[in-house]
Design a protein around this nucleic acid. Sequence first.
DNA 1: AGTATTTGCCGAAATTTTGATAAAATGAAA
DNA 2: TTTCATTTTATCAAAATTTCGGCAAATACT
Lengths: 226, 226
Amino acid sequence: MGDTTPRYTILIVDDEVRMRRVIADYLRIKDFRTIEASDGVEALEQFHREHPDLVLLDVMMPRMNGWEVCKEIRRVSQTPILMLTAKSEEDDELLGFELGADEYIGKPFSLKILSARIEAVLRRHTDTDDPALSLSLLRVDPLAREVYVDNMRVELTYTEFELLSYLMANKGIALSRDKILDGVWQYDYCGDARTVDTHIKKLRSKLGEAGEMIKTIRGIGYKFEA
Amino acid sequence: MGDTTPRYTILIVDDEVRMRRVIADYLRIKDFRTIEASDGVEALEQFHREHPDLVLLDVMMPRMNGWEVCKEIRRVSQTPILMLTAKSEEDDELLGFELGADEYIGKPFSLKILSARIEAVLRRHTDTDDPALSLSLLRVDPLAREVYVDNMRVELTYTEFELLSYLMANKGIALSRDKILDGVWQYDYCGDARTVDTHIKKLRSKLGEAGEMIKTIRGIGYKFEA
DNA sequence: AGTATTTGCCGAAATTTTGATAAAATGAAA
DNA sequence: TTTCATTTTATCAAAATTTCGGCAAATACT
């Protein structure tokens, strides 16, 4: 099984080296490529550099805990997230789902079960989403505030960047101009709705072919679609 | 061959004296200058004192292991790193590359192969990278609190040094003025955000061409980029 | 006194917004 | 189906605003 190309890349985030090692070794046998991060900040860096297909996220971590990382990833990506936690309390689980985690596993867990869940989540995801498209054509790095289209750097202004982030965070949802104004421009900014149009236009032109991911919903507003 | 000036300085980091000696002897024949360190902490000290052209790094070491040293060096420098390890496991290699190592050699190795790899890495580095720019342009020695631009010492004030360190520690991340104020001036110092601008300006002018590594992110703040 | 740091102000440049106009889509009527 | 009127969106350019960098004065620190 070792000579095939890994099907998916999995980012393992845990502050304990031994835990990471155990999981990584097992997943590699199962033909996954693994990358690791030992805390939240590093996790986000790795995430943006490697664009893993799934993130295994420990909750208890220094610097930035799992919930925060989860939230931050969800701001720009639909990448499946599987949360790991020592306490298997119900409200933790609830919080996890609220923040956008796809699965939730309480420690201790068997590696067999872990990999089964991973398979399930990935299957669920690849059925619906198109991984090749959103992954390679348009890439947004919120930490560096950089945007790449087809691996080429695109310079966006402050508002353009915020607007794109907002649209992507609400991928697949038709947003009215008012909602967009509320979301991107702070607290009930009283501006013309045409302002949104203008920025959408600039975004589309700067994003080139990726600009077509911003759809016009007539009578409503706009929608981002992968 | 002994009368020529050594082309490059190589820092050999290994806790075994005999191993260091064997490698050093051979590399000296190959016309390299060698310096040595027996553990991670010493390695960092030597690194900052001597600014070697390449680091040979053993993974298994007391006090601070090779991965940590590698990571620490990468925080402030692009100097080529060649990792040495006894276990020739795949994941070690992966981790090494993730952390920024340039090459990876499993023990035991032949000295011939080792020096060939060293030559290759050095050649690669001086070819592809703009050596005058990324490699030796800006060097920060946090222990000595010294900064070198193009190998010329630059005197920075306390705040300037802190600011530069903070920016470099968060390389590639767009930082708001508030974040910078928090990070450099600690404990929610309530100062004008323009203060940051002024210090950035001074830093840029003192750093000369290296000052261009400090990018302005309009509407946000600043970002350090190698 | 002599640095180092902070603050205020101004002009240049970049960005955002506005307003006017053209283009496109929609739906109803011919 | 075609035409026409209406509504909605796209485009463009100019005005208004914001932001940043530089300068210099004021303040703090040694």
